[in-house]
Design a binder for these strands. Structure first.
Lengths: 224, 224
DNA sequence: TTTTGTGAACTAGTTCACAGCT
DNA sequence: AGCTGTGAACTAGTTCACAAAA
């Protein structure tokens, strides 16, 4: 272990929570920039977007000294820094595995393009779908072509939107093709090697946890 | 403050994290039950599904003494308890606001029906969509009818799947109609009264946090 | 013996509060 | 004066480890 550059500690692992917040901060800054705001203090940012000022400062300070004491942060400059930190200074290329309702909806989701992601390809096993395109124009390939297309199109992230029973299979295909990051929408957790970053969006768990809080509320009313 | 029943503490707030895990446990138990497994220890459950045994026990013990020492948990019995805790012992009724690609995909998402949710109605503002149905048969209503349909159909949960700029408006409509739980897919955080439970699924943040970890990996390779 | 349920110990994450810079 | 960057204090969440039960 050698001495590290303080502003950009390389060895340590940044938490999932911090990573998510950086993305939130960038969105806030986009809003402010669009409104013509030039500088913003952590306090003002926190108040406007219901965040915590100290946390904003700590999250940002971890990556460098972006602020100016007595002033705050220059919106455009911080935006630029955040885009770089989030890897958005170049186009991030995404493939979606599964051209069902959900896969097709994600392929054409405007939020992704907006922030600079390129949805490059869809994959499916169903004969009738292969060769067709999503409404937004994303081409559907046979899953057998995955490795080839990943290389050719330099895919960075694979999105898994297939039924639960085929999810582990397709993620294996993705990993073998060299994909290092996976966004999984299928229920149940997938196994990936430690070098691959996996993020789960579990729709059923989300709904069920809401149902849980409703049920608790009911119990509270009943039991006093 | 009066003395509480230990097995079901009513006053305390259960964390989001715990709520999500309960839902995960239920899914694991469904798998085990389908495989004909009668009893399972927290250790075996943890190993099979990559969880922590102590955490499983703690999460469950908070709601009652469901286990048998020396044996473990009876799968069917624990399943029944969890379904009750999660409020799934009755049909949970869901409305989706926004009949775009995402709203329609969610309306027909098989995972929801499977676990006993009923997707009862879609809502949109677009003339051409109103009166039509999703492929799976969920009817699309005008947003103006929301209050009426919520009452008639006894909606428990509203899912927000509209563009960012109309999200706060539709969630206000939902809250005014008496909805107590909202699953929000639109980017940016919505304001709801404290009595309403809001859960955000932010697709852009999910992708960006993956992009962040890829970018860090690159930096690590470059900087040693 | 096996395995739960749980206090205690530990780890991670958040917020406070202030020295120090502009 | 105003605001950042950050150590210290605090809060939340997880894991350990073991007494008690079957």
């Amino acid at each position: 272990m050698t001495e590290r550059n303080k502003a950009r500690p390389v060895g340590e692992q940044v938490s999932e929570l911090t990573a998510g917040r950086l993305s939130v901060y960038l969105r806030c800054l986009n809003t402010l920039d669009a409104a013509g705001v030039k500088t913003i203090s952590s306090k003002a940012l926190a108040e406007q977007f219901q965040l915590n000022a100290a946390q904003i400062r700590k999250d940002l300070a971890y990556f460098g000294e972006f602020g100016v004491r007595g002033v705050g942060y220059y919106v455009k400059e911080l935006k630029r820094h955040l885009r770089m930190i989030l890897g958005l200074d170049r186009t991030v290329r995404v493939a979606i595995l599964g051209a069902g309702n959900l896969g097709l909806a994600l392929a054409d989701y405007p939020g992704f393009r907006q922030e600079g992601f390129a949805i490059v390809a869809l994959f499916d096993t169903e004969r009738g779908k292969i060769g067709r395109r999503s409404r937004g124009g994303v081409r559907i390939y046979a899953i057998g072509e995955f490795r080839k297309v990943v290389k050719r199109e330099r895919i960075d992230i694979a999105v898994v939107a297939v039924p639960a029973d085929s999810a582990q299979g397709v993620v294996n295909t993705a990993v073998q093709a060299g994909v290092r990051a996976v966004l999984n929408f299928s229920p149940g957790s997938l196994k990936v090697p430690p070098a691959v970053k996996l993020k789960n969006v579990d729709l059923t768990v989300s709904l069920e946890s809401l149902s849980f809080f409703l049920a608790r509320e009911q119990a509270e009313v009943a039991n006093g």
